[in-house]
Simulated scan of single mutants.
Amino acid sequence: MMNGLPIADLAMLAVALLAAGALTGVLAGLFGVGGGAVIVPILFEVFGILGIDDEVRMPLAVGTSLAIIIPTSIRSFRGHYLKGAVDMSVLRAWAVPVVLGVVAGSLIARYADPWVFMLVFILVAGVNSIKLLFGNEKWRVAMDLPKGLALRAYGGLIGLLSALMGIGGGQISNIIMTLHNRGIHQAVATSAGLGVLISVPGALGYIYAGWGREGLPPDAIGFVSLLGLILVVPTTLLTAQIGVNLAHAWPKRKLEVAFGIFLAIVCARFVYAILT
């Protein structure tokens, strides 16, 4: 028994986490995301079943997600880089402001109420869901990305929001790049590189943010669950290359619709959690 949960149920949760890890890896390569959009809501529900305190449940899911997507993001970025699809000039321009945004998000995480994390997730995932379900590839706000300070401001925004919702930045950067006339394959590949810049400082920041907090499970280091790492990471590593190959070989419309519906359901779940 753990927190009143039978061993058989724990085994089922472990299987669910392994399956989630497999899906995370595929999504990391396919959409240029670290998989946090999948892992965060799953961990949120799992930690709830295990009886984790509501005050730390959401930041624990976010911090653990950031730690989980470290190896996934590295593998995904390497795969896209070897295919020559990454825009390194954009990645270099975003590197410092992205990390600064992540640091700011980690500091906020130490003091923010749970609803703050949920609200950021709802806003970002909701916009992405709408774009996936109803968006047109011809939608544009400009014919190219801005230069200088404006481009770096995008990087800071990506880092801040990603750190607060536990993602590798792909959802946000994909939208920004495609709306600025960049091809989806380049956007996906470049977004994969952001996952590395976000996940490493993000995980370390959440360890700091949760250090000494009450209500955390015994396996947690700050807001990072070691059990979550052990169960999810292996399958993400095994399946990330599958997603990379799919991104360069398959039409993605049906998968985009499925992912958009999933995000909409998650948003509705977090709205319910905030209201209740």
Rank of each mutant, 00 (worst) to 15 (best):
G63D: 04
A240K: 02
F270T: 08
Y111V: 15
F262G: 07
A67F: 13
Q241W: 10
G79C: 10
W115C: 02
T236I: 11
H248P: 08
I261M: 14
D144P: 00
L237E: 01
V86H: 03
I130N: 08
D219H: 07
Q186D: 11
I52H: 04
T178M: 10
R57P: 02
G101Q: 06
A11L: 15
G195M: 08
A112T: 09
A109V: 12
V98K: 00
L197T: 06
A14D: 08
L119G: 03
S173K: 01
A150N: 06
A203L: 06
A104V: 13
T236Y: 09
I274A: 09
S162Q: 04
V124C: 05
Y111W: 13
V99G: 04
P217A: 03
G48K: 08
M2V: 14
R152E: 15
I221N: 11
S162Y: 03
G168I: 10
A247Q: 04
P146F: 12
L149I: 14
A8R: 08
P218Y: 04
L226P: 00
A189Y: 03
I130Q: 11
P251L: 10
K83M: 09
T178K: 00
M88G: 02
F259V: 07
W211T: 12
V124E: 00
A264F: 12
T190H: 03
V271P: 01
T239S: 11
L133P: 07
A20K: 02
P251S: 12
I108L: 13
